[in-house]
Computed example of a mutant assay.
Amino acid sequence: MTEDAARAHLQIGQVAERTELSIKTIRHYDEVGLVTPSARSTGGFRLYTEDDVERLLVVRRMKPLGFTLDQMRDLLDALEVLDDADSGPDERARASAIVLDCRTTATQSCEKLRRQLDYAEEFTALLIARDTR
């Protein structure tokens, strides 16, 4: 690997810092084939590109919304199809349907989380009002 190629890649610790995911989680995503590093060092260490980091950030955003690993994989694949100018119309239509489905699910999940946060804040306010110190 050339020096320029090595500089273009990030090691797993750097990726963990950038994505706020643990090294263990990033390794797990590699093991299940969700986000595979683009390269390996001569010593076998995982090396990631900016595109890999972006994929991990998509996964990080999906995780708190309750998406499964399969749904995450489907969305990542769909986004790749939509980014590929050589994708055919049928393939693009399927990919667009997956993105729309994920958007609907994400919107519903956000609404649920907002309600839960409202309840948590109401409860906290109740406890503050009852503070007996």
Rank of each mutant, 00 (worst) to 15 (best):
K24L: 10
T2G: 11
V32N: 06
D90Q: 04
R103S: 15
Q116L: 06
L117P: 03
A120R: 07
S96D: 02
E31C: 08
A106K: 00
Q116G: 00
Y48G: 13
G66D: 05
M72G: 00
L79Q: 09
L100M: 14
R114N: 07
G88S: 08
L10Q: 09
E54R: 14
A6D: 03
D74G: 01
Q116A: 02
Q108H: 01
D83I: 05
R46Q: 13
M62L: 14
G44R: 12
L21E: 04
V99P: 08
V58D: 02
A16S: 14
E111I: 02
E91D: 12
G13D: 10
F45H: 15
L10Y: 15
A106P: 10
L57Y: 01
A125Q: 14
K63M: 08
A106G: 06
E121N: 02
T68A: 12
H9A: 13
T132W: 11
V59C: 05
E111W: 02
Q11M: 11
L126P: 07
Y29L: 09
T36V: 14
F123K: 09
D30P: 13
L10P: 07
A78D: 08
L69Q: 02
D51Y: 04
R114F: 09
G13Q: 09
I23L: 10
T42S: 11
M72R: 01
A95C: 13
D52E: 07
R73L: 04
